[in-house]
Simulated scan of single mutants.
Amino acid sequence: MFAEDSLAFTVNALDRMAPRRTDAGWLAQQMDLPQARHLGFIGERALLVLNPLGGLALYSLPPSLVREPVFLGSEGEEKPIFASLLPDDQDLAMFGEEVKAIDLRSLAMQSVLPPPMLGVLAQARTLLHWHSTHRFCSRCGAPSEMRDGGYRRHCPACAADHFPRTDPVSIMLVTMGDRCLLGRQARFAPGMYSALAGFIEPGETIEEAARREVFEEAGIRVGEVRYHSSQPWPFPANLMIGVLAEGLSETITIDRTELEDARWFTREEVRAMLAGRHPAGLIVPAPFAIANRLLRSFIGA
Rank of each mutant, 00 (worst) to 15 (best):
263 R>H: 14
273 M>A: 12
264 W>S: 06
235 F>I: 07
247 G>N: 11
257 T>I: 05
233 W>F: 15
277 R>W: 07
287 P>Q: 06
230 S>M: 14
227 Y>A: 06
268 E>I: 11
266 T>Y: 02
300 G>E: 07
289 A>Y: 10
272 A>P: 06
254 I>A: 10
225 V>M: 00
271 R>F: 11
288 F>T: 02
281 G>W: 03
256 R>P: 09
264 W>M: 06
260 E>P: 07
226 R>D: 07
231 Q>G: 07
299 I>S: 02
260 E>F: 08
229 S>Q: 12
266 T>V: 05
240 M>Y: 14
243 V>W: 00
239 L>T: 03
294 L>R: 00
294 L>H: 02
294 L>K: 04
240 M>A: 15
278 H>D: 12
243 V>E: 02
258 E>C: 15
245 A>D: 08
223 G>I: 03
239 L>S: 11
264 W>K: 01
276 G>R: 10
246 E>V: 11
228 H>W: 05
292 N>E: 05
290 I>L: 10
229 S>F: 11
266 T>R: 01
292 N>W: 06
243 V>H: 03
251 T>D: 15
300 G>P: 07
242 G>V: 07
279 P>K: 14
262 A>F: 09
262 A>P: 05
279 P>I: 11
254 I>T: 09
269 E>Y: 04
227 Y>M: 04
238 N>P: 01
300 G>T: 09
227 Y>F: 11
282 L>G: 04
274 L>C: 14
264 W>L: 06
279 P>R: 14
241 I>R: 00
273 M>G: 04
285 P>V: 03
301 A>N: 06
253 T>N: 15
291 A>C: 15
274 L>Q: 13
272 A>N: 10
229 S>A: 14
238 N>I: 04
275 A>H: 10
301 A>C: 08
234 P>G: 00
265 F>P: 05
232 P>R: 04
260 E>Q: 15
280 A>W: 13
238 N>A: 09
255 D>V: 04
269 E>D: 06
271 R>V: 10
283 I>P: 05
295 L>R: 00
226 R>W: 08
247 G>M: 09
235 F>E: 09
293 R>P: 01
275 A>N: 14
236 P>I: 02
263 R>P: 11
288 F>A: 06
230 S>A: 12
225 V>A: 03
258 E>I: 05
291 A>H: 15
229 S>D: 15
248 L>I: 08
233 W>K: 06
252 I>K: 05
248 L>N: 09
259 L>I: 11
295 L>M: 04
292 N>M: 08
267 R>S: 07
283 I>D: 02
285 P>F: 07
223 G>D: 03
267 R>V: 04
242 G>P: 08
248 L>Y: 02
239 L>Q: 15
250 E>G: 13
257 T>V: 12
230 S>G: 11
282 L>R: 01
253 T>W: 12
259 L>G: 09
293 R>H: 12
266 T>E: 00
234 P>Y: 02
231 Q>D: 08
269 E>W: 03
295 L>W: 00
224 E>I: 12
238 N>H: 12
283 I>Q: 06
241 I>G: 01
235 F>Y: 13
289 A>R: 09
223 G>N: 00
288 F>K: 06
292 N>H: 14
277 R>Q: 14
254 I>S: 10
226 R>K: 13
293 R>Q: 13
